[in-house]
Design a protein around this nucleic acid. Structure first.
Lengths: 218, 218
DNA sequence: TCGTTCCGTTTTGTATACAAAACGATCCGA
DNA sequence: TCGGATCGTTTTGTATACAAAACGGAACGA
């Protein structure tokens, strides 16, 4: 594996998992030393992250990790709604029914999965759902656009720290989407996706607000 | 200006204007010599272009300019429809009516503009339309996504070499979109955008087909 | 006390040298 | 004649050295 890829993946992982806090200056020299690569491949990694929006180079010379504000999450979801409602519509048009039938069952079992195997097991099912959508849409450019949005979503989700009650509702919403796609009902798939995204956004913003006021009390 | 930015802009311009033909191997050494920079900033430029999809690094080690196929254009328009129909909807919700009233007049005059000042003057109006949409939407993440799609569209459009008859129809379609946005009619703005995109795609694919069969005859 | 300017330090931007890997051509064998 | 392997050449990937620019602090003046 190339050193630049290694640096990219490590940095990306650090940012998405909040190991690097927003606002932290990303010094090339320091990071290169920490990751054990020279500055040249590290610069390439930083450039990739900057183009993905995970590093903000607009302020000053040194890149920093942008913070996750309520406004930025709301903007992200506006873009996400544009992409995912259309993706659901296209998926319903071109899907393999068996794939989504299987996902319907997975989401119906979500309560058990969550209780037995924890939150990561649930997110694994969601990841499978995303991959099924990508495959059904069958459009590389569309997939890349969706991936970009999902990347940023990971950060927002980790911050919001989804509560089990919300996850159970989300599983139900996902099940509805899968049923619509399985049945080839484009309009319903699109609408059900919109419903899910609005509910998710509301939940995340509520968590963010609660956290913000908690920080304020301190 | 940084050498890497210079190399990026020059290369990007060369690719978008078809001065570099699809399939051409992008040798770092040769390009660095031609642009008068060293390989380090040139590599950064190539990396940026690769992430934008203007350079394909998936095949072999040397990057090449991807070609514009009918399939890739159709895929691009699927993504474009997802973004622009939603952008039109959001723009209708938040617009400054005066801005789009002015654009309505511009597109109504398009026939004269085209006859008097040529095709570039018409595309300048379209660029103003795009900027008005961006401003009305007011969502940085959305704007970045739209910019990415528009970049690829430039290549497809240059290849298709729009005919005046099509441009006049396109101006009419744009006028309809602007009227809907001006009036705050979200549903109509979205639908009118979908109509315009489908017509544009059909025109581009027809030109591509004609060119393909012409190449076949040779 | 506040603002401004200058200088030292740090950090980024660029160039070049070297190492590694991949592609292509040629030669050998079946 | 065709397939495959090996070697040479070319190209990329990485490291390091140097130049330039920007930030921060201190000192000076108002």
């Amino acid at each position: 594996m190339r050193a630049s890829d290694l640096a990219y993946e490590r940095l990306r992982d650090d940012i998405l998992s909040w190991r690097i806090a927003p606002g932290t200056p990303l010094s090339e020299i320091e990071l290169a030393a920490r990751l054990g690569v020279s500055r040249t491949p590290l610069r390439a990694a930083l450039a990739r992250l900057a183009l993905e929006g995970l590093v903000d180079t607009s302020r000053g010379r040194t890149g920093i990790v942008p913070d996750v504000s309520a406004a930025s999450v709301a903007e992200l979801f506006e873009l996400r709604e544009a992409l995912e409602t259309q993706a659901a519509r296209l998926a319903a048009r071109r899907r393999d029914p068996a794939v989504f039938e299987s996902l319907v069952a997975d989401f119906a079992r979500a309560s058990d999965t969550l209780a037995a195997s924890g939150i990561d097991a649930y997110y694994e099912v969601v990841a499978r759902f995303d991959r099924a959508i990508d495959e059904a849409v069958g459009n590389p450019a569309f997939r890349i656009a969706l991936d970009g949005v999902r990347t940023h979503l990971v950060r927002a989700r980790r911050m919001a720290a989804d509560k089990p009650a919300r996850l159970l509702r989300a599983a139900d919403e996902h099940r509805l989407i899968c049923e619509a796609i399985r049945d080839g009902d484009e309009a319903l798939a699109s609408s059900a996706t919109a419903v899910h995204l609005r509910a998710s956004l509301t939940a995340i913003l509520a968590t963010l607000d609660a956290r913000a006021s908690q920080e304020g009390i301190r």
